[in-house]
């Protein structure tokens, strides 16, 4: 059983992806298959980037259970997603120019996360958004 917290700062573009890289390395060392590892890495990276671009900051919690389930929980402090249906539509984005400068903001993030994970739960309000994604790793 592994349970680990990582802090994400608002607009911390310099460190964007560092948490996803750490999580990927950690799971690789634990012997997670390359196919599952790639899906986890892509999903985690997209969600981490989303938090940096859109939120006031928050945290990522990695839980790996003895039963072989990997859960990633992304919880931020707002401002929330105005329209989840639109946010889930490929190509729809509210990202600022600063995000587009480093290759993001194409509106592919949430749809791509959903496509790559085995479980997907998204709850949002102005007080914050929580995205929980799960993967079968064994």
């Amino acid at each position: 059983m592994i349970h680990q917290h990582f802090n994400v700062e608002k607009e911390d573009y310099a460190n964007a992806g560092r948490i996803s890289s750490q999580i990927k390395q950690m799971l690789k060392q634990l012997g997670v298959s390359s196919e599952v590892l790639r899906r986890i890495a892509i999903s985690c990276y997209e969600a981490e980037i989303n938090m940096i671009i859109h939120s006031y900051g928050g945290e990522v919690v990695l839980t790996l259970s003895a039963e072989g389930k990997c859960e990633l929980r992304f919880s931020d402090m707002g401002p929330g997603i105005d329209d989840i249906e639109k946010a889930m539509t490929p190509g729809w984005s509210t990202a600022k120019a600063s995000a587009r400068e480093f290759g993001f903001g194409a509106g592919m993030g949430l749809p791509n996360i959903k496509r790559n994970c085995d479980e997907f739960d998204l709850v949002t309000s102005p007080a914050g958004t929580t995205l929980v994604i799960g993967f079968k790793v064994l």
Partner: peptide, 17 residues
């Protein structure tokens, strides 16, 4: 192959192995 010279092009490659 990209014109995006930024840490994020390296990170993206890393995530894709």
């Amino acid at each position: 192959v990209t014109g995006l010279v930024h840490a994020q092009s390296l990170r993206t490659a890393e995530m894709l192995d």
